[in-house]
């Protein structure tokens, strides 16, 4: 029997600063973002990114938080007890066992985006695993307006995973393949994951190629989030966080629709939530929080 391949599976990884000596640092702050699909842990030493990890959230939030921080701290010599202040965020924020405080992910994403992409960022779009948030923020990364759609998973990473599985295409290839079409097809009429799945099957039966189906789905998803953004008003500069930021099939179509380019960052923007949480932890430490 052929080996079963999990097409939705994305790469889990960790990173730490190759030269920084954390033992010299005065403030060690951590942010843990336990999302519905992925979990990130990030450690800041004196306000600089020292280490982070990006893993899949399991069925148990406390375990996911523990795994994330252990993976981030691997080979650094740092331990959980060395963290002076930890902020939990995301869907499972109240379930981070070693966190000193929980802060909503909307405030954290805005703060993280402000740090990663600079103070000129006004619009942050977080396309997560299970919801989609449009955030408007000021030059300090403070939220001024936001809109969240967490009632349905259309236009989120979960929808992409379902599509990857249905079409047997590794999730990381979806964006590029969606551009390998002779002409841009009409978007699928439904972005609802369940309906889009049956619509995709119908299109393939009528002779569409997999790439065409992907293109149609990506553009439908881009259109859907652009409507969400439209409600709060898009202002330059614009930054995308969350896993979908890695899918050029959606990012480029969204840029086209909005007429502005998204800002690029040095690190993976999926860590923005954990980074924002870490920055809040760092600020709270400076204010003398215990």
């Amino acid at each position: 029997m052929a080996e079963i391949q999990e097409y939705w599976r994305w790469t889990e990884y960790s990173w730490h600063h190759p030269e920084m000596d954390w033992r010299q640092g005065k403030r060690i702050a951590a942010g843990i973002d336990v999302g519905s699909v992925s979990s990130q842990a990030l450690v800041l030493v004196d306000g600089q990114i020292f280490a982070f990890s990006n893993l899949r959230t399991g069925s148990n939030s406390p375990d996911s938080a523990n795994n994330a921080i252990k993976t981030a701290l691997k080979d650094t010599g740092m331990e959980i007890k060395d963290l002076q202040y930890t902020v939990g965020t995301g869907y499972g924020r109240v379930n981070v066992p070693f966190a000193n405080r929980a802060i909503t992910e909307i405030a954290c994403h805005a703060r993280g985006a402000n740090f990663m992409a600079g103070p000129k960022v006004r619009t942050v779009l977080d396309m997560g695993g299970q919801d989609c948030k449009a955030i408007h923020c000021d030059e300090r990364g403070k939220v001024t307006n936001f809109l969240m759609n967490d009632k349905c998973a259309a236009g989120t990473g979960r929808g992409m995973e379902v599509m990857a599985d249905l079409l047997s295409i590794p999730i990381k290839d979806i964006g590029d393949l969606s551009f390998q079409v002779d002409e841009e097809p009409q978007p699928v009429s439904s972005t609802c994951v369940v309906f889009a799945k049956s619509e995709a099957l119908g299109l393939m039966r009528s002779g569409w190629s997999k790439n065409m189906v992907l293109a149609a789905y990506c553009s439908a998803m881009a259109h859907r989030v652009s409507l969400l953004l439209g409600r709060i008003g898009v202002e330059d500069q614009f930054f995308i966080t969350g896993g979908i930021a890695k899918n050029p099939g959606i990012v480029k179509r969204l840029e086209q629709e909005l007429g502005i380019q998204a800002v690029k960052s040095q690190h993976d923007s999926q860590i923005a939530g954990a980074l924002g949480a870490g920055l809040f932890a760092d600020t709270l430490l400076q204010k003398g929080a215990q």
Partner: peptide, 16 residues
Amino acid sequence: MIANYGYKDGSGEYFI
């Protein structure tokens, strides 16, 4: 800051 609470579904947009 304007905090919008609610959701959007097939029948419309419902935010406070």
